[in-house]
Design a protein around this nucleic acid. Structure first.
Lengths: 64, 64
DNA sequence: TACTTTTGTAAAGCAAACTTTACATAAAAA
DNA sequence: TTTTTATGTAAAGTTTGCTTTACAAAAGTA
């Protein structure tokens, strides 16, 4: 699953640390998600959706 | 997090077992999600979204 | 009623999401 | 160049999504 988190974050001049604090996860978790190491949980995806004002489907690209 | 999985499933005359097989999880997992025992992973949510032809946000109601 | 299907749930175990600590590298700023 | 900030990554541990097995109860059907 690809995602646009890094682009959305940097476009807002936020650091991984900033985003992590707002979302309520660790900086390493943001880094891992941006790097595609693993997918976020549904609650984490929802929090990002709310912050970036974009539907989950537009931030995360699901591919079978 | 509330969800409409049970309604969507029964509206299509599917059993938990049917849905589980299509989505690729166990029947107990479907039951737990319907009962709100836990949230599905993002990939599982995407599969349901595809099957029911509804955006994730319309199937799962996130509440802080 | 008797039988079959569907649902609910519990226990034990595995895997993935996430944590904390820690350190190394890269990039930006002084 | 020196110092600070931001990013990358690793290791060990916790939590949660999910599995299998198993059984009980509810609901539908003969």
């Amino acid at each position: 699953m690809k995602n646009k988190i890094r682009d959305l974050r940097t476009a807002r001049n936020m650091t991984q640390e900033d985003l992590a604090e707002i979302i309520g996860v660790s900086r390493q978790t943001i880094n891992a998600i941006e790097k595609g190491k693993f997918d976020p949980s549904l609650p984490t995806a929802f929090k990002m959706s709310k912050l970036f004002k974009l539907p989950i489907e537009q931030m995360f690209l699901f591919e079978e």
